[in-house]
Design a protein around this nucleic acid. Structure first.
Length: 189
DNA sequence: CGACTTTGACCCGCGC
DNA sequence: GCGCGGGTCAAAGTCG
């Protein structure tokens, strides 16, 4: 995946936690202030290109611009200030993919013009205010659209495990007693 | 019993 | 100002 910095680098975990044959990442979008107008332009262009049916989960939302602004400006007290939103469109049988973080579901809404409900999740890690929305593509329910908002202020349990494995000893180190299995993992910061 | 999910109510921004 | 639609809250229910 080549794109802007992924706020959820734990996707490396998919190698170990998800059968890759079960889904495929087909779209990746970075949605933040600086990209807003550009995105709208792309949506317009795409909807023209794909008139009569789009394969892009976002291009066909006529009200895309409004949806885009709504993500940010809800309830002043909860106004998001992270500015980072990343949307993934994946082909998956699973409604919720295990991305290594622990999520708490806090809402579910049926969305206009979509037969599929949208689910809302917050990162259940204390002090982390990252949210994600999960909904199935209204045109092709085999696709799941996942939108992340914000950046985790902690490492995912899965990534911690991954890093830990990166520090696994060589056979020689174990044999020679140079590795302490009880020692905490080393995190590269 | 604590953590999590469900779900209806409520809040707020936006368009008309 | 009103209604609509999306996002969030919070109480109740469920599960391990």
């Amino acid at each position: 995946m080549n794109g802007p910095e992924n706020p959820n680098p734990n996707y490396t975990c998919f190698e170990e936690t998800v059968n890759l044959s079960e889904f495929q990442l087909s779209d990746y979008l970075l949605l933040e202030d600086g990209f807003k107008e550009d995105l709208s332009a792309k949506m317009t262009a795409n909807s023209e290109e794909n008139s009569g049916g789009s394969s892009n989960g976002f291009a066909h939302h006529e009200d895309g611009e409004r949806r885009n602004s709504n993500i940010r400006c809800k309830r002043g007290k909860n106004k998001l200030d992270t500015g980072i939103r990343v949307a993934f469109r994946t082909k998956s049988e699973l409604e919720v993919m295990d991305d290594g973080f622990k999520w708490r579901k806090y809402g579910k809404k049926s969305v206009k013009n979509s037969p599929n409900p949208r689910n809302y999740y917050k990162c259940s890690s204390g002090g982390c205010h990252v949210k994600k929305r999960v909904e199935r593509d209204r045109d092709d329910s085999s696709y799941v659209i996942t939108t992340y908002e914000g950046v985790h202020n902690h490492e995912s349990p899965c990534l911690a495990y991954y890093n830990y494995r990166q520090t696994r000893p060589t056979v020689d180190a174990v044999v020679s007693g140079g590795w302490d299995p009880q020692a905490p993992p080393h995190y590269s910061s």
